[in-house]
Amino acid sequence: MFELTLRPATPADVSVLLDLIMALAEYEKLSHAVTGTVEALKEHLFGANPDIEAIVAEYAGQAAGFALFFHNYSTFLAKPGIYLEDLFVLPQFRRLGIGKAVLSYLAQLAVSRNCGRFEWSVLDWNESAIAFYKRMGASILESTRICRLTEEPLTELASNNSSLKVRPATPEDTPTLFHLLQGKAEFDQKLDTLTGTPEALQRHLFGEPSYIEAILAESEGEVVGFATFFPNYSTFLTRQGLYVDDLFILPSHRRQGLGKAMLGHLAQLAVKRDCGRLEWLVAVWNDQAIAFYKRMGASVLPDWRICRVADDKLTQLAAQLGDNNQNLGEK
């Protein structure tokens, strides 16, 4: 029986990784969407400030697949997570348990790094993949959709200057930021899911390593809104993006342009950092928010769903890999 090996990618793997990315794009009939280069991928994986990580799956000594991932963040949990951007196994190596092994490997990594959850996305028509992920313990978030700003709509939003005050959060803002976060949890009727602490949030905002950033909106000297965000990544573009985890404005200060001002500020940051896209989630029932985001130039992706493994399901998935010869590695 051939042995499956899962290992962290090294700089020597970059050309193989790009070949696998091209194979993934061809499989999805999206070869035209791959605009990245070996040099960019190597810089983002192994440069001075790496954005992403990757693992290589080898079967019988051959590169059989890969996974590319990065840390995301949950403001409510005040914990980092792992987001799987891409997982691909070459067709001739399928039905050998490689996909399951990769998911278990990444779940182990999430547990070892004290992450709150492990997430990825799936197309809603891919019923076999959805069934497989559910068997692995994943929940499919049916009630949310991904919003995306890219290319001209992103630069156009970034070019809209607002007179409203939006600024980066500082450590001194942590109590105010957490109070607003409690307000969002109460407004969303999700106070029971707010399990993080101000101390953990401050550590992850301003400590080392930092996982997330925050901006605040002010009106007449009072902080009345916030947004938290972190870098994400596009494998096909080999470019970083920005992902908005939470955006909230006090109900008493809505319809004053603050939401547009914060999105504009985030779009400016994305353009300044040479990001390929700005993304966030929206609830499917929130017609008002969807209409607002579309006016800002965002596309609402109708067929993508978020998969999530958390709590006991995460530790159970991590345990499925067992104590094999895999080296999880550390950042």
Rank of each mutant, 00 (worst) to 15 (best):
E279W: 02
Q256G: 06
S219L: 07
V223E: 11
W280Y: 14
L205P: 13
A200W: 02
E172H: 08
L216S: 15
Q268N: 04
Q268M: 14
P168G: 14
F206N: 07
A200P: 04
Q268Y: 14
V271P: 02
L247K: 00
E213M: 02
H253Y: 08
G241M: 01
L266P: 15
T197A: 10
P168Q: 07
V166E: 09
C275L: 06
L242Q: 08
P209V: 06
S210H: 06
L242A: 08
A214K: 07
S162V: 00
F206G: 08
C275Y: 10
G196L: 06
A185P: 01
L266I: 03
P198C: 10
P175N: 13
A267W: 03
R167V: 11
V244G: 14
P175S: 13
D245W: 03
G183C: 07
T170M: 05
V166G: 03
Y243M: 13
G225Y: 00
T193V: 13
T197L: 10
P198S: 05
P209F: 04
Q268K: 09
G221K: 06
K165N: 11
R277N: 09
H204M: 03
T228A: 05
E220T: 14
F206D: 15
L177H: 11
L191Y: 13
E279L: 13
W280F: 05
E222T: 04
L250M: 13
I212D: 00
E279F: 03
L266N: 07
L247P: 00
W280Q: 10
L269D: 02
H265K: 11
H204R: 14
G241R: 02
V271F: 03
L191G: 07
G221I: 02
F229C: 08
Q202R: 14
P171Q: 12
F236S: 12
T197R: 09
P209K: 04
L205M: 12
S252V: 00
L180E: 10
Y233V: 09
T170I: 15
L263R: 01
E218A: 13
P175L: 13
L180S: 05
E186Q: 15
F230M: 03
L201K: 10
S210P: 15
F226Y: 15
N232L: 04
I249A: 00
E222F: 14
A270F: 10
A200F: 10
T238Y: 01
P171M: 08
T228I: 07
G241F: 01
T195P: 14
S163I: 12
G259K: 02
H179G: 12
G221L: 06
E213W: 10
V271I: 08
L216Q: 08
R203A: 05
K260C: 01
S219G: 15
A217Y: 00
S219D: 09
I249M: 01
L278Y: 01
P231I: 02
V224C: 02
E220W: 02
M262I: 15
